[in-house]
Computed example of a mutant assay.
Amino acid sequence: MNGAQNAASRAGRAIVKGGRFAMSSAPRVSVLVPCYNEVGTVRELWAQVRAQFAALGVAGEVVFVDDGSTDGTREVLRELAAEDPATQVLLLRRNLGKAAALDVGFRATRGDFVLTMDADLQDDPAEMPRFIEALESFDVVGGWKAVRHDPVEKTLPSKLFNATVRKVTGVQLHDMNCGYKGYRRAVVDELRLWGELHRYIPVLTTARGFTLGELAVTHHARRSGVSKYGWERYLRGLLDLFTVVYITRYRSRPLHFLGTWALAFKLLGLLLLLLVCFTHNLALGVLSGVLLACAGSWWAVGLAAEGGHAAAYTSLPDYPVAERLNG
C-alpha cells in the first residue's frame, strides 16, 4: 500500500475523542455473526448492534455469514442487506460448520476491531463497548459466560472441556468456546480456521504471540430456535485438541514429535529383543519386531513431514514479528 492509500485509509477510520468514537466513512468496528437457522433472532440482533454503533458514535458494519440455513434466515438476511448498505451478507452454499463461517467472515470484515457473537441473542450487544475498550489493551478478548443459562448437559461437559484445554495448552481462559470475542485487525489478518478449530482460537492466537484478555459477559437464555450442538461436539473437540497441539508446537518441526515416538518404540523394541535372547519367547520376538518396524515408520513419516514443510515453507504465514525498527 502506497503513502496516498495509507493516508486515505487513516482518514476513513474513526478517531477517538474524549473516550468516544467520532463518525467516519469506513468502519472502525465490524461485528461478525455466523448463523444457522436463526430466523427468529437475526433481525432483532441486527437492530441492537446498529443501536450500539449509534450510541458509541462509531462507524460500524455488520457481517452475517449464513451457514446453509433452511428456515428462512437467508431471506431475512437478504432484506437486511437491502435496507442497510453497511450490512454484508455472505451465504454459504451448504452447511460447512462454524469454523468455515468465521473464516469466510473474517476475510470480509474491514474494521480495525472485529467482534464476533452468536446469532441467537444469548450474547448481548450491549457488551460491545466493553469489548472495544478492552481491545485497546489486548489483541484478543474472550467472553466468559460466568453465569450460563443453559441446561446441565451443556454446562457440565463445557467445564470439563475447558479444564482439559487449560491443562494441556497452558492457556488460562475460563471459556475457550464462547462465541463472543473481540479481535484487533492484525489478529484477523493472520488467523485461519478450518475443521472445527474455532473452539481453539485463544490457543491458536496465543501461539502466534498475540495478547489475550477475558471479560465476564451476560448470557441470556435462548429465546427461539434450538441449540445446534450436542455431546458429540466435545468428543470432536478433544480430537481437535491433538491437531491444535501439533500445529502450535510441532508444525515447523514435525520430526521432533514423530521422532520422539519413534525413539520410544525403538528402545522398547530393543529391550524386548534383549529379553528374547534370554527367554527365547516367540511372542516377545514378534512384538519386538513390530515395535522396531513402527519406529522405522515413524522416522520415515517424520522425515517426509519435514520435507513437506520445507517445500511448503514459502506459503506458510510469516513468523510473527511484533515490531521492526529501521528495517
Rank of each mutant, 00 (worst) to 15 (best):
R130N: 10
F161S: 02
D123N: 09
H149A: 03
T155R: 07
D123V: 04
F138G: 01
F161E: 00
D123I: 01
F138E: 08
V141M: 07
L160F: 15
A146F: 03
E127F: 05
V165H: 03
T169I: 09
V147E: 14
K159A: 10
P125D: 10
T155W: 02
K154Y: 13
K154G: 00
R148W: 01
W144M: 07
L156T: 15
D124Y: 06
T155F: 06
W144F: 13
R166I: 06
K159V: 11
W144R: 08
D123Y: 07
V141F: 05
D123P: 00
G143R: 00
W144C: 06
A126G: 12
K167I: 05
L160P: 06
A146C: 05
P151Q: 03
V165P: 05
F161R: 00
D139Y: 13
E127I: 02
S158V: 00
D150Q: 13
S137L: 04
A163T: 13
N162E: 12
P157Q: 01
R166K: 14
P151Y: 01
P125W: 10
R130A: 12
Q122N: 08
E153N: 08
P151F: 03
E127C: 08
K145R: 15
E136A: 14
R166C: 03
E153V: 04
A163I: 06
H149E: 11
P129C: 09
A146V: 12
R166W: 00
L156S: 10
N162V: 08
D150N: 14
D139P: 08
R166A: 04
R148Y: 00
R130Q: 14
